[in-house]
């Protein structure tokens, strides 16, 4: 399987031009668009002198190609500029908040996969049944849900009306102390610390925002699972397996599902794109201290270095996630890299 190893290396190599493209676009967004970036970067309370100072410190008086080289140089040193609003380097701000966003996103994705994939399979194996109808309704309604609105409705119902959810402010109620920082994921850190009370507290805070995001991502995953499962079940090799007398479980899971998984995994890339975007809105609604709400706050105070740093960080994160998805795909599909034609 030498060809496959080569194909995997090729896939990793293909990420490089994409990363370069991402850097070029984020450079263009920062420097080359209408409006004076110096004014933007100096912030709202800038004086002409401070703007001039910013211009020089950012190298904005130099020609574009030179600016690009400086920009790349800064990136390589991990320098995304200073956050005007907090006065700290943007990279530090993002690093401090990234675990909160990742924890929320991953929990939501696990939650939605855990519901959507079985739902899609059930719907595909019983076409026309109530499960199928439910799945179709969920799928159409799910993609129509504005996440920020779903979040508000959940807050209204579970916090205001029923009073069973904690107040939608952040990752942990004030009565708990943050668990010692190991992974940055409160759920994991609190367990490592042997502190079940904090774990429950963090979980209670997490449930509503994660459910909001999960509701949003449920639809595409369930839809793709259902479609992929239906087409796999209709395939010729399923007929062969049936004619050979294989039992239902083997046919369904060993043959159909493993094949159906391929398009589902591919869809996950798109789902990540949606979920990282929706993350921003959900974090704002639930005052979740992740990089999304940081970016929104930065937008309000025109802290452009922070916003651009956020956009770049999200893009790089997404490139990595896509790479992981493709590598996962290559493990499931032996044809990966063989379809040279």
């Amino acid at each position: 399987m030498n060809g496959r190893g080569a194909a995997i290396s090729l896939r990793i190599a293909q990420a490089i031009p994409v990363v370069i493209g991402v850097i070029v676009i984020s450079f263009l967004l920062t420097r080359a668009l209408p409006g004076d970036p110096a004014v933007q970067f100096a912030g709202a309370a800038a004086t002409p002198e401070s703007i001039e100072q910013v211009r020089q410190s950012l190298g904005l008086d130099k020609p574009l190609p030179e600016q690009f080289i400086i920009y790349v140089g800064q990136l390589l040193q991990g320098d995304l500029g200073q956050s005007v609003s907090t006065g700290r380097p943007v990279i530090q701000e993002l690093a401090a908040r990234l675990p909160a966003s990742l924890e929320l996103t991953l929990v939501a994705l696990i939650l939605s996969c855990a519901i959507a994939i079985p739902l899609g399979i059930l719907a595909a194996t019983r076409p026309g049944s109530w499960v199928d109808q439910l799945c179709r309704l969920l799928v159409t309604a799910g993609v129509s849900l504005p996440t920020f609105f779903t979040g508000l409705v959940l807050i209204y119902v579970f916090y205001y009306l029923l009073g069973i959810a904690p107040s939608p402010l952040g990752r942990l109620d004030f009565i708990y102390l943050d668990p010692p920082h190991v992974t940055g994921f409160f759920l994991i850190d609190s367990l490592l610390d042997g502190d079940p009370a904090t774990f429950m507290g963090a979980l209670r805070q997490l449930i509503l925002p994660a459910a909001t995001l999960a509701l949003f991502t449920l639809a595409p995953i369930a839809r793709m699972t259902r479609t992929a499962m239906l087409s796999a079940l209709g395939a010729d090799y399923i007929r062969t397996a049936r004619a050979a007398g294989l039992n239902r479980g083997k046919i369904l899971y060993g043959y159909a599902f493993r094949n159906a998984l391929l398009p589902v995994v591919t869809t996950l890339g798109m789902v990540f794109s949606f979920v990282l975007g929706a993350n921003v809105l959900v974090e704002k609604v639930f005052a979740w201290p992740g990089i999304g709400s940081y970016a929104v706050e930065a937008l309000v105070v025109s802290d452009y270095a922070a916003v651009q740093g956020f956009v770049l960080a999200m893009a790089l994160l997404f490139v990595v996630l896509n790479l992981v998805i493709d590598l996962a795909y290559s493990i499931i599909d032996p044809r990966f890299g063989a379809d040279a034609k």
């Binding site: 493209g21 921003v280 970016a295 956009v311 893009a315 997404f318 490139v319 896509n322």
Partner: peptide, 12 residues
Amino acid sequence: TIMAFPLFVLAM
């Protein structure tokens, strides 16, 4: 390259 950005984030 465009798709490499989470799209809502790129719009932002």
